[in-house]
Design a protein around this nucleic acid. Structure first.
Length: 583
RNA sequence: GCGGCCGUGGUGUAGCCUGGUAGCACAUCGGCCUUCCAAGCCGGGGGUCCCGGGUUCAAAUCCCGGCGGCCGCACCA
């Protein structure tokens, strides 16, 4: 049994996660997060919010998971999802038609139809590169889930493959409602959907999964990152383009300063978020040496990015697995939506000193037109209004006339004003760097890294602030007096806001073991001495060390431990007497 | 999608080859005992043997199809 199997076994048995729809045979790529798993995920989300949103005063939104066709048409997803596949009739292997043909030196336009691709394959006698077999008919495949919105089948919608488009589409609203704050970070935590062809790898590759995404909008003319100073000397593990091209398999560790100076990372804020991501994953219990950032090469990158690093963690069965992606999306998305929607999604840049801008205004002179063209003025004016102002200007200046309503209208019929204007703001399209995290993979990785076996017992050494219960409370034995006190402690800790696991059945050792297995960091045990001096013992999940503590100090003790201070350290600071059981 | 292996209480499995009452361990529940690490004893519950079809007097077992899982190939914008 490998580690992944053990972790999944534990996850199913104790209720962290399991495959969905099992009673009907199951559906590949879909999992249920159980009661303990949901708590874990929520705690991971809480940490992410604190680190990526709250500490920068960024803004979080929730936008719909379903979007009309046009959104993903604009974003380029429709185009880059609609790949043409061909499969070999002999061995059944599937290939993307475009990459197959490009390898043969044949150019295919992206807009080529299925029939065109089929005939190109036939004419060039392209065979299966693996077995030499003949290809069957080509077909489209898309990894976006398609649906209809409302009862009309022509109203096509997609389930979003990323939450990011919500931030782009709604950018202007958020920007305006927060008084044009800039630079601005907008985040979203939510479900995304990708109809994977053949998902495997358990909870690592899902068809439906939670993402935590942040879009950081900045001015391309002032791309200095305001947070950079603090992280310049921090190290990153980078398997960057140059290293990959040299055939390097291992990452190289360098400081942010070096990475930026050597242009390994081309954007300051991207580097900053990569540092945050490293700290975040480290706080989740995955040491730095098992993390790295692998650069995506040209061709591997998503259509919208000019530079991308995947943050990967090393997993036992699957090796390096992506847990977050860091992409420089430039102004790709906002520009695309401006073009598609015709709406203004610009931000405004305050200029240091007023700038003089040459303005050219062209206005038709109706009286003059009526004098010379009479009733035709109606058609002329109507057609003129249809022409874009910029186009009108350039045509008029180039040709000296413009043809409307069958009339060559010379520039005498226009009032052409040229003047210089002072401006203090100017519009621009923000650029974006995006850190985007896959929550389900992260939660799985956390479990795998927390998983330990000690003398045939399973211990889940989760960081205390991630554990599904903060503390467990036990009477040493099922004795009425001990039970009463234990219940009392349980209730008061619950009232203090802790998640308490209360267990009275079977031997104390077995109860410790059950709690260790799901990662409860602290055990509080009421024993016979409690009756004498109102003290209880606290036990550390990882070391099994115990200390004696006054009942009314337990809450503070728990608070410090789940903040991340070490168990022994807190006990020492509080001057607790260590407890050793007889025997 | 292709190839290989596989699917039996919650978990891990035996039984399948050679068709004939589905067994074991752990977990779980109740009781007894018990002053600190899955202790012991007694008792209980829990199985559409992945689904469908076929062969047969009889199918967990043999045959066919499907679904699901793992590994490899392909795919993962």
């Amino acid at each position: 049994m490998d580690k992944a199997e053990k972790v999944m076994n534990l996850a199913v048995r104790r209720g962290f996660f399991w495959p969905a729809y099992e009673i009907y045979g199951g559906v590949a790529g879909m999992y249920v997060w159980g009661p303990l798993g949901v708590v874990l995920k929520n705690k991971i989300i809480g940490l992410w919010r604190a680190m990526f949103i709250e500490s920068h005063d960024f803004l979080e939104i929730e936008s719909p998971a379903i979007a009309p066709y046009v959104v993903f048409e604009a974003s380029g997803h429709v185009g880059s999802f609609k790949d043409i596949m061909v499969s070999c009739r002999d061995c059944g292997r599937k290939f993307r038609a475009d990459t197959l043909l490009v390898e043969k030196g044949i150019e295919v336009s992206e807009a080529a139809s299925l029939e065109e691709v089929d005939s190109i394959i036939r004419e060039n006698k392209v065979r299966c590169p693996v077995c030499g077999g003949v290809f069957g008919k080509s077909s489209y495949f898309t990894t976006m889930f398609k649906t209809t919105i409302g009862p009309y089948s022509e109203s096509v919608g997609f389930l979003r493959p990323e939450t990011a488009q919500g931030m782009f589409v709604e950018f202007k609203r958020i920007y305006e409602s927060f008084r044009r704050r800039f630079p601005i970070g907008i985040a979203q935590i939510g479900r995304g959907f990708r109809n994977e062809i053949s998902p495997r790898q358990g909870p690592i590759r899902l068809r439906e999964f939670d993402m935590m995404e942040l879009e950081y909008f900045f001015d391309p003319e002032n791309s200095d990152c305001p947070y950079l100073e603090e992280v310049l000397d921090e190290e990153l593990n980078l398997l960057h383009e140059e290293l990959i091209r040299k055939g390097g398999k291992d990452y190289e560790t360098m400081t942010v300063r070096e990475a930026l100076e050597n242009k390994v990372i081309k954007n300051g804020c991207m580097a900053y978020f990569m540092v945050l991501a490293t700290r975040f994953i480290e706080l989740l219990g995955i040491p730095r040496e098992n993390q790295r950032f692998k650069e995506k090469l040209e061709g591997e990158r998503a259509h919208y990015a000019i530079q991308t690093f995947d943050q990967e963690v090393k997993l036992d069965r699957w090796g390096w697995v992506e847990v977050s992606g860091h992409a420089n999306r430039t102004d790709y998305d906002l520009s695309s939506h401006i073009k598609m929607s015709g709406r203004d999604l610009y931000a405004y840049r305050q200029l240091d000193k007023p700038r003089e801008v040459e303005v050219l205004e062209v206005t038709p002179l109706p009286k003059k037109i009526r004098r010379d063209y009479g009733d035709k003025i109606r058609d002329i004016m109507r057609d003129l209004s249809k022409i874009e102002a910029e186009e009108l200007k350039s045509l008029l200046l180039k040709n000296g006339f413009i043809e409307v309503a069958g009339v060559k209208l010379s520039k005498e019929y226009f009032d052409i004003k040229k003047y210089v204007k002072q401006v203090t703001v100017e519009p621009f399209i923000p650029h974006v760097v995006e850190p985007s995290f896959g929550l389900d993979r992260i939660a799985y990785a956390v479990l795998e890294y927390a998983y330990r076996e000690v003398n045939d017992r399973v211990v889940l050494s989760l960081p205390p602030y991630l554990a599904p219960y903060d503390v467990s409370v036990y009477p040493l034995v099922e004795d009425d007096k001990l039970l009463e006190i234990a219940e009392d402690i349980r209730d008061s800790l619950a009232a203090d806001g802790y998640r308490v696991l209360y267990d009275t059945k079977e031997s104390i050792g077995r109860r410790y073991a059950r709690a260790d297995e799901i990662g409860v960091p602290i055990a509080v045990t009421v024993d016979h001495r409690t009756l004498e001096d109102d003290s209880v013992t606290v036990r550390d999940r990882d070391t099994w060390r115990q200390y004696r503590i006054k009942r009314d100090e337990v809450s503070r003790f728990i608070d410090l431990v789940i903040q991340g201070y070490g168990f022994d350290e807190v006990a020492g600071d509080m001057g607790l007497e260590s407890f050793v059981s007889k025997e």
